[in-house]
Amino acid sequence: MDPLEVTTTWARMLSVTAGACAAAGAPGPGTRIRGKPALDFGSGPWLGLIDFEGLRRPERETLLPWLRERIEPLLLVRHLLLAKPLGEEVFIELGPRALEAMPEGFRDAPRPILILAPAGRTRPERRRQYLDALSRLRIPLVSAGSSLWAIREFDPEFVVALARLWKDSERSAFRASIDPSQTRLFDQQLPAAEAAVLDDLVGARDEESEIALDVESVSALNPDAHPLAVYAAVERTRNRRKAPKERTQFSARTIEARLSARGFPEDVPSCTEQFAARAAAIVPLLPAELQRAFEATELLARD
């Protein structure tokens, strides 16, 4: 592998520790919704599938031991049980550590599944492959269907850089290459950057945003719905109002709706007085928010 590019890696590290995210997309188990982590809406850890397709061979070889020896337990304490990485084929296989650590009965019930995809590296049809493969599986883990499957994208270059810096030799070489006045800062920033990336992978650093506000209000109106199902409905209602280039496909339900040509154009029902009255009693909304919440609630009911 080429030597690590010091200035860009250092700039990226500083930006991530300053608050830029290294992973984004659908909620993860750590994303806070209505004041509590999404994990609290179900029981047990979520299943994480990291996608290696699109990564180069040396990148995979760097990531594999780092994930297995360093990251897997650190993600588990963040309530994400990481399965073996996905290659060309999409299937669920748990490694020995995951098998040892998973709670009893983990595989006997449906679980939220978070696919960690390398941003900018996957082919457009890859999302369809995720969906097709998971739909074909006949195991309890996936039996709740696509409303519990979603995608978060991560920065592959930075994650690989962190994996390389985990090795003493790479870390020493990197440290020797930066300005001597910054070596102490580097020593502090590296663990902070790693923790930030892990938190980003599970959504623990997700901040307030327009879509997060909609997820909160729809979740308040549908308290029994899982955050991933709520996110799926909200993403679809927001996509209806966006230009094609701005639409997102982080929820498996969104992908499924598009593939089955139910995504666009859709009949958009108008908010009923009955719903408006119910909403007013639970979470007062502005007219545009109310309409979106109504559409999302309709989608949730239909799904």
């Binding site: 608050g19 830029a20 945003s209 327009e210």
Partner: peptide
């Protein structure tokens, strides 16, 4: 800052968002 959609990589928009945060 809260209005800029989160992106997993450093783009021009992310750089602006981060400076807004600061």
């Amino acid at each position: 800052h809260a209005s800029v959609p989160a992106e997993p990589r450093l783009t021009a928009r992310v750089a602006i968002s981060l400076v807004l945060r600061m």
